[in-house]
Amino acid sequence: EPLWIRPDAPSRCTWQLGRPASESPHHHTAPAKSPKILPDILKKIGDTPMVRINKIGKKFGLKCELLAKCEFFNAGGSVKDRISLRMIEDAERDGTLKPGDTIIEPTSGNTGIGLALAAAVRGYRCIIVMPEKMSSEKVDVLRALGAEIVRTPTNARFDSPESHVGVAWRLKNEIPNSHILDQYRNASNPLAHYDTTADEILQQCDGKLDMLVASVGTGGTITGIARKLKEKCPGCRIIGVDPEGSILAEPEELNQTEQTTYEVEGIGYDFIPTVLDRTVVDKWFKSNDEEAFTFARMLIAQEGLLCGGSAGSTVAVAVKAAQELQEGQRCVVILPDSVRNYMTKFLSDRWMLQKGFLKEEDLTEKKPWWWHLRVQELGLSAPLTVLPTITCGHTIEILREKGFDQAPVVDEAGVILGMVTLGNMLSSLLAGKVQPSDQVGKVIYKQFKQIRLTDTLGRLSHILEMDHFALVVHEQIQYHSTGKSSQRQMVFGVVTAIDLLNFVAAQERDQK
Rank of each mutant, 00 (worst) to 15 (best):
I238A: 01
I239F: 07
G240Y: 00
V241G: 10
D242H: 01
P243Y: 06
P243G: 06
P243M: 13
E244H: 09
G245L: 02
G245P: 03
G245S: 07
L248H: 06
A249V: 02
E250Y: 14
E250F: 07
P251H: 07
P251W: 05
E253R: 15
L254H: 15
N255H: 06
Q256A: 15
Q256C: 15
T257W: 14
T257A: 13
Q259Y: 11
Q259D: 11
Q259V: 11
T260R: 02
T260L: 02
T261F: 11
T261W: 09
Y262L: 01
E263L: 10
E263H: 14
V264N: 04
E265W: 01
E265V: 00
G266H: 00
I267H: 00
I267C: 01
I267W: 03
G268K: 01
Y269F: 01
Y269Q: 02
Y269K: 03
D270E: 13
F271S: 00
F271A: 02
F271R: 00
F271K: 00
P273Q: 06
P273E: 07
P273C: 06
T274S: 09
T274N: 06
V275Y: 02
L276C: 06
L276E: 01
L276W: 02
D277M: 00
D277F: 02
R278L: 04
T279C: 15
T279V: 12
V281Y: 07
V281I: 04
D282A: 07
K283Q: 14
K283S: 10
K283L: 09
W284I: 00
F285L: 15
K286Q: 07
K286F: 00
S287P: 06
N288R: 12
N288P: 13
N288G: 10
D289F: 00
D289R: 00
D289S: 00
D289N: 02
E291G: 05
A292Y: 01
A292V: 09
A292W: 01
A292G: 09
F293N: 00
T294I: 15
T294R: 10
T294M: 01
F295R: 04
M298T: 13
M298G: 09
L299T: 05
L299A: 05
A301I: 14
Q302Y: 09
Q302K: 05
E303A: 06
G304T: 03
L306F: 09
L306K: 04
L306Y: 05
G308P: 02
G308I: 00
G309P: 03
S310E: 05
A311M: 05
A311D: 10
G312V: 00
S313C: 11
S313W: 01
T314W: 02
T314A: 12
V317R: 07
V319P: 04
V319F: 13
K320Y: 15
K320C: 08
A322T: 05
Q323P: 04
Q323A: 11
Q323D: 11
E324K: 15
L325I: 05
Q326Y: 12
E327W: 02
E327S: 04
G328I: 07
R330M: 11
R330P: 07
V333L: 15
V333K: 01
I334V: 15
I334K: 05
L335T: 00
D337I: 01
S338Q: 06
S338N: 09
V339N: 07
R340Y: 04
R340K: 08
N341Q: 04
N341K: 05
Y342G: 00
Y342L: 02
Y342M: 01
Y342V: 01
M343L: 07
T344C: 07
K345L: 01
K345H: 03
K345F: 00
L347V: 03
L347S: 00
L347F: 07
L347E: 00
S348V: 15
R350D: 10
M352R: 04
M352V: 04
L353D: 03
Q354K: 11
Q354F: 13
Q354E: 11
K355I: 04
K355R: 15
G356A: 06
F357R: 01
F357H: 08
L358Q: 10
L358R: 10
L358P: 09
D362I: 02
D362A: 12
L363T: 11
L363E: 03
L363K: 10
L363M: 12
L363Y: 03
T364N: 13
K367V: 13
K367G: 14
K367E: 15
K367A: 15
P368N: 09
P368R: 11
W369S: 02
W369K: 07
W369R: 03
W370L: 05
W371E: 09
H372Y: 13
H372V: 15
L373E: 14
L373V: 15
R374E: 12
R374K: 14
E377Q: 13
L378F: 15
G379E: 10
G379N: 10
L380I: 10
P383T: 10
L384G: 10
L384W: 06
L387H: 02
L387D: 10
L387Y: 11
L387I: 15
P388Q: 10
T389K: 12
T389L: 11
T389Y: 11
I390W: 15
T391K: 04
C392D: 08
C392K: 09
C392I: 15
C392V: 15
G393C: 15
T395M: 05
E397C: 07
E397H: 12
E397S: 04
I398E: 15
R400F: 09
K402C: 08
G403N: 03
F404E: 03
D405V: 03
D405T: 09
V409P: 04
V409Q: 07
V409E: 07
V409F: 08
V415A: 11
V415S: 12
G418A: 09
G418C: 07
G418H: 14
G418K: 05
M419E: 05
V420H: 00
T421F: 01
L422G: 11
N424P: 09
M425I: 13
M425F: 11
M425P: 08
M425K: 12
S427D: 09
S427G: 14
S428L: 13
L429Q: 08
L430Q: 05
L430W: 09
A431R: 09
K433I: 07
K433E: 14
K433G: 09
V434L: 13
Q435W: 09
Q435K: 15
Q435C: 14
P436F: 13
S437L: 14
Q439P: 10
V440S: 14
G441C: 08
K442G: 09
K442F: 15
K442E: 15
I444N: 14
Y445W: 04
Y445S: 12
K446F: 15
Q447I: 12
F448P: 08
F448E: 07
Q450I: 14
R452C: 14
L453D: 03
L453M: 14
T454L: 07
T454P: 13
D455T: 11
D455G: 12
T456D: 15
T456K: 15
T456H: 11
L460I: 03
L460P: 05
S461K: 05
S461C: 13
H462V: 15
I463Y: 11
I463K: 12
L464W: 08
L464N: 07
L464D: 07
M466V: 15
M466S: 14
M466I: 15
M466Y: 13
H468V: 05
F469E: 14
F469N: 10
F469H: 08
A470V: 15
L471R: 02
L471I: 12
L471S: 07
V472L: 14
V473G: 12
H474C: 11
H474W: 04
E475S: 03
E475M: 08
I477P: 02
Y479M: 13
Y479C: 13
H480N: 12
S481F: 15
S481R: 14
T482L: 15
G483D: 13
G483K: 11
K484W: 13
K484F: 13
S485C: 15
S486H: 09
S486N: 13
Q487E: 15
R488H: 14
R488T: 09
Q489P: 12
Q489C: 11
Q489N: 13
M490D: 14
F492H: 12
F492W: 13
F492A: 12
F492S: 15
G493W: 09
G493R: 12
V494H: 02
V494A: 09
V494C: 09
V495P: 08
A497W: 09
A497V: 13
I498K: 10
I498M: 14
L500A: 15
L500R: 04
L500V: 13
L501T: 02
L501E: 01
N502G: 13
F503N: 08
V504P: 02
A505V: 15
A505W: 02
A505K: 06
Q507G: 14
R509C: 14
D510L: 11
Q511G: 12
Q511I: 11
K512C: 13
